[in-house]
Amino acid sequence: MAAGAASGGSAQSDTYAEARTWLLLPAWAVLGIFILAPVLMMLVYSFLTKEFRGGVIWEFSFAAYDQFFCNRGLFGDEPCAIEWTFINIFWRSIWQAGAATLLSLVIGFPTAYFIATRPEKVRPIWVFLITIPYWVNLLIRTVSMKFMLRDQGPLNDFLISTGLIDSPIHIVNTNFAVQLGLFYSYLPFMVLPIYASVERYNFSLSEAAADLYASKWVTLRRVLLPAVKPGVIAGCILVFVPSLGSFLAPDLLGGAKNFMIGSLIEEQFKGNAGNWPFGAAASMILLTMVLIILLIFARQQAKAEKGAG
């Protein structure tokens, strides 16, 4: 098991050490200016005073965070009680994204594994089969998903005609529809990293385990899984994080009855509310949450590697 984690010996080296600053400079510049700087600016905005109907006034204010965490009643003059509204919105989004991630993992892992164990020549064909639907726009896919799942849609028609059900199953405008939509949106991000790590996996390790009379599933769980764990974790993160902030699937498939994090933030900048500092604060809270989750993942992974080594 220990050997599994440390395969490939000297893949990391210092061959190009003296050029590294120049090699990294373009990435630093582009990401620093167009991702990091905007996020920092957003942090600043979350501490400014809101301008009525959109915009900010350059005065320090804690109002955005107060609004997020404090319930001061309908008229805003009661003492601070815990505001559950936004916590619930966040919780709902986390739950949805988590369920979608789980769904993706349950279906994506076997698929990725299956593809990675095909003969080398046909693997690209399988990968293409998985990625082709993603050349069709996400919006179209989401809307066609909705079209499929409608009460009078093809799926229900099909199920009724086969006699499996008598009356249509209501799927659209439910949480399940949203999860299905998210799953459908991000599945390849689960499949591809897992595929990549299973493909690199040295199957002689499994063979060795099997020779030592480990059963098939034990081999999978104790030998293969630890070795491909980075791919699995990468896949989960790649599905979970975009699902968390997504608003197309919840809006189109969930009926927009309830805010999700994404739609709550969007509403502050594009919709009715026009409260920029609050939108910025909600964004920062979301970001903090994601970073904490990632940190926990990273810690655990590091621990697992240490334990393995």
């Binding site: 990401l31 991702i35 996020v39 994601v290």
Partner: peptide, 21 residues
């Protein structure tokens, strides 16, 4: 961390931040 930042920051946050920026 910087390279993976766009993956860690949810898209809606990047979108809003870029707009403000």
């Amino acid at each position: 961390g910087l390279i993976s930042l766009p993956l860690m920051v949810p898209e809606i946050v990047t979108a809003v931040a870029t707009l403000i920026f």
